[in-house]
Computed example of a mutant assay.
Amino acid sequence: MNAQTLHPSSPSSSASSAGPAAVAAAAEHSSTIDAEFGFIRDPARRQLAPLAFGLRADSPPAVAWRAAQQRERLSFWDFPSSPFCVKVRAMLRHKGLVFEAVDPLAPAHWWTLQRRGLGKVPALQIDARFVTDSTDIALALEALYPEPALVPADARLAALNHALEEWADEALYFLGLHFLWLDPATAGLVPQLFGRGPLGRLGYQIYRRRIAAQVRGQGTGRKPPERLLGELQRQLDHAAALLQPGPWLIDEQPRLADFALFGQLSFLLRAVTSGPLVRERPPLMAFVKRLRAVGRDASATPR
């Protein structure tokens, strides 16, 4: 699964316990993401990372140089906490593309997304063309802007890249949905992501009900909490092993599978129960730190 439906969730929950330190760590991770990407909802809080040589992403030379290389206008419909939006955002930045960040929960934007983007995020508007699903977006970007490449030229490595992307987008994603949305330990954090307005509160309730149904229908939601915890630990151990000796999953540069794993690890870091399990595995945290630094010079203009 590579997209999340922004459409209006009968709560389903599993028993879980976490200490104050874990709650504080998850809240800190969430506030870090909100600080980085809050501009999507609040342009006054927009933060732009500095470019190399002391330039900023909004400096005229930086914007002019990137715009000269880019023919198409890109509008990225971005819900900051979605792991698939994290994945696409990082790919856009990795390719050095200039894009407009669109808040899909703003009423006018939400209706546009329903009509043209099938109600799902991430969605990328390339001039007049709408592309949804993070993998489809990656392939569309690869066709337009082939460097740096997200897919290796070697057929075997390309197949491995695809398989690991699917693993991250499926196996890790549904575990992340459980631990972030349905685990009682994280219940107080998630509503904040939707904002304080009436549309945000309504969206949270609808979305939570939908997620509970998805997780149960896929099978993860039918497993007892202790089994899900053990499954998550095994998956994280596999991910850490795949990153040895590193720095990337496939070869010498970040590929589509790396961005998929990055999105899911960022998702898991937000949850009270799963966050500490990621943090206690140094290869995973080193990987997250590397990908957070990739493409920090990309420019996003809020709308």
Rank of each mutant, 00 (worst) to 15 (best):
H29E: 15
H29N: 15
S31R: 15
T32W: 09
D34F: 01
G38D: 04
G38Q: 06
F39Q: 08
F39G: 07
I40W: 00
R41C: 05
D42H: 11
P43R: 14
R45H: 08
L48H: 04
L48N: 02
P50V: 04
P50C: 03
A52G: 14
A52Y: 05
G54N: 13
G54A: 14
L55N: 03
R56P: 09
A57D: 10
D58H: 09
S59H: 07
A62Y: 00
V63R: 11
A64W: 08
R66Y: 00
A67C: 12
Q69R: 15
R71K: 15
R71W: 06
E72K: 11
L74C: 04
L74Q: 03
S75N: 07
F76R: 07
F76V: 09
W77G: 04
P80A: 03
S81L: 14
S82M: 12
F84T: 10
F84H: 08
F84P: 11
C85A: 13
V86C: 06
V86F: 01
K87Q: 13
K87P: 05
K87H: 08
V88A: 02
M91T: 07
M91W: 01
R93H: 07
H94C: 09
G96Q: 04
G96S: 00
L97C: 06
V98E: 00
V98D: 01
E100R: 13
E100L: 05
A101Q: 03
P104S: 04
P104K: 02
